[in-house]
Write a protein that binds this DNA or RNA. Structure first.
Lengths: 141, 141
DNA sequence: CCCTTTTTGAGACTGAGTCTCATTCGGATA
DNA sequence: TATCCGAATGAGACTCAGTCTCAAAAAGGG
């Protein structure tokens, strides 16, 4: 929402040879302004409720650009709907999903990250990215 | 395909209050007889090619029973189609997917497993299951 | 302001998976 | 082994996230 973020977004569009439109800005604003893990429909509805006319097609198309440029992270929670969250330069993290409440908890563990790279290398590969979700339930008190 | 496996399968059906049918047996046979990571359509087509009449609905319904009873593992490779593999009592493993060739490599790392339980516990949760996929590309020679 | 090119949006389409319900089958019982 | 009834099956309708189409609208360089 601040100037530097908008400039950054414009730069990415330029780099991709894409035009700056209010719809694209609205999608980025919407994702950026909420730290939650939201699905596309949710993002689409919010933008419309904010009075910006946009189509689902445009929402999906813009999300793809944002994901490709690492401004947004796409995550598969396993219920058939992808969730999105802004990256905003903050450190990488994985997710823990409570199977009882659906609550999503973020976590980051250095050791875990290193181990994954090591495993890939041991097999003759380089780690590009990973999907890692822990499905958990509350510990009995 | 051998007697004890069939008995085991029948036992699970009984436990679930389900009847033993040739379609259900065919689905289990099909998954069991291939160590590959196959999708539902693939399994469905193979069974039909083997001369057993079965519907997609039955394939999906049977897979659900097998997954619930831990005879089959369901995995999300991220392309919108779930893959299935037999468990056959063999040890747990995760997958590495080559983004260049699509090859799926299985791996198991004790340290990684322990670490995940530890992380869940540190957050007041118990690990129920996890999704863990490493997307990799070949190391440059 | 013009003009070319890109973007948009409404809604058609896709494809994996689920649901429906009339028909068929399993298997317990006698 | 024949009967019977609830469970299982299958064809295809349906769902739903996401993609595609293409005419109309907007961007933005000149």
């Amino acid at each position: 929402m601040n100037d530097s973020t908008i400039q950054n977004f414009k730069e990415i569009l330029r780099k991709e040879g894409l035009r700056y439109t209010k719809q694209r800005q609205a999608v980025w604003d919407e994702i950026q302004n909420s730290q939650e893990h939201r699905d596309a429909e949710d993002i689409y509805m919010s933008i419309r409720n904010n009075g910006v006319n946009v189509s689902r097609a445009t929402v999906y198309r813009t999300i793809d650009v944002l994901v490709k440029n690492r401004m947004v992270r796409k995550m598969d929670v396993g219920d058939g709907r992808n969730r999105y969250e802004p990256r905003l330069g903050d450190a990488h993290h994985d997710h823990m999903i409570c199977v009882e409440t659906g609550k999503i908890i973020e976590f980051y563990n250095e050791e875990l990250e290193d181990l994954q790279e090591k495993i890939a290398e041991e097999n003759g590969y380089m780690l590009v990215r990973h999907i890692h979700q822990l499905f958990v339930k509350p510990l009995k008190k």
